[in-house]
Design a protein around this nucleic acid. Structure first.
Length: 281
DNA sequence: AGTTAAACCTGGTTGC
DNA sequence: TGCAACCAGGTTTAAC
């Protein structure tokens, strides 16, 4: 999926068109990871508020016609999900595809979640601070661009973990947002070996890694994210970051910095790509 | 408690 | 060409 850059690009794509839109119909396809948790008919007539993001989750708040809270929808794109925004009238829009599993029809266009693997989810919650949303967001660490996430705070979070730094980045407790692609890329940029225990990372190297996470995620957003197979923005456009990746998906190809072939190893059942020369323990 | 495996799914690619 | 094996952006849950 979609890691943080792809989710943020999706948020930006739907925010303008859909904020203030009124829900006219909710259609469900095959089951996603978790049930919606509300009768879809109960959402008809509600109005979308300011669309937010927390980690790799989107939050679509809903208001009653009277302006009171109607809860909201917590959306996750899983491994293969993407949202499409169709601003054509419902009658003339293309019929839902076999992988369109959640469709939100509004007076300003339709939002479709296309997710072949169905690891994604759309869950109604009374608020972000109540279950089920609170439970799902509980373990998330700081946002990568939060000013409160200082190098000191980040280093302290690494100090309490003995697992490989790659796994810590994927875990999202020290900082959210980096998935398999961007964790590999950030570690390369910081010159850190992915198998290095997190608690063995010095303060200067932690500072460098935090900077690398931020610049990698930022650059990915500039390029429209990464499109390996499924991901596109809400208009169907592919991302371009994957062409700029230094290590991800480049097993056997020469490192752009030293020429040594990039290696692929498995860590916690996930492929890790790295340069054994440029990335040190 | 802290880490690691299994599970959830479909589909594209690779290799015999 | 057919078919099996393997691989894929994530995260929860169960099991050592």
């Amino acid at each position: 999926m979609p890691e943080l850059p792809e989710v943020e690009i999706t948020r930006r794509g739907i925010a303008g068109p859909l904020e203030g839109a009124i829900v006219e119909l909710v259609q469900l396809g095959k089951p996603l990871r978790w049930p919606l948790g509300v009768d879809p008919r109960a959402l008809v007539g509600t109005r979308l508020g300011t669309i937010g993001r927390r980690g790799k989750y989107l939050w679509l708040p809903l208001a009653t016609p009277q302006g009171g809270s109607a809860g909201g929808l917590l959306v996750h794109l899983g491994m293969s999900g993407s949202l499409a925004l169709l601003q054509t009238p419902l009658q003339s829009s293309s019929p839902p595809g076999p992988h369109d599993h959640f469709i939100l029809v509004t007076n300003r266009g339709s939002l479709r979640l296309n997710d072949p693997r169905r690891f994604g989810a759309v869950v109604w919650s009374p608020s972000l601070h109540d279950d089920p949303a609170a439970k799902l967001l509980r373990r998330l660490g700081p946002e990568p661009f939060d000013a409160a996430l200082t190098p000191e705070v980040f280093h302290a979070a690494l100090q309490s973990r003995r697992t490989p730094i790659k796994a810590v980045l994927l875990g999202g407790e020290a900082v959210v947002g980096a998935g398999n692609i961007y964790a590999c890329e950030a570690l390369f940029q910081a010159g850190i070996h992915p198998a290095l225990r997190a608690d063995r990372i010095s303060r200067p190297r932690a500072t460098r890694l935090l900077q690398a996470v931020r610049s990698t995620l930022g650059r990915a957003m500039e390029l429209g994210g990464s499109t390996l197979r499924d991901f596109t923005d809400v208009h169907g456009a592919s991302g371009a970051f994957q062409a700029e990746a230094a290590v991800y998906g480049r097993e056997g190809l020469p490192c752009g910095r030293c020429g040594t072939p990039i290696r692929r190893v498995l860590q916690a059942q996930r492929s890790t790509y790295f340069c054994a020369i440029c990335q040190r323990r």
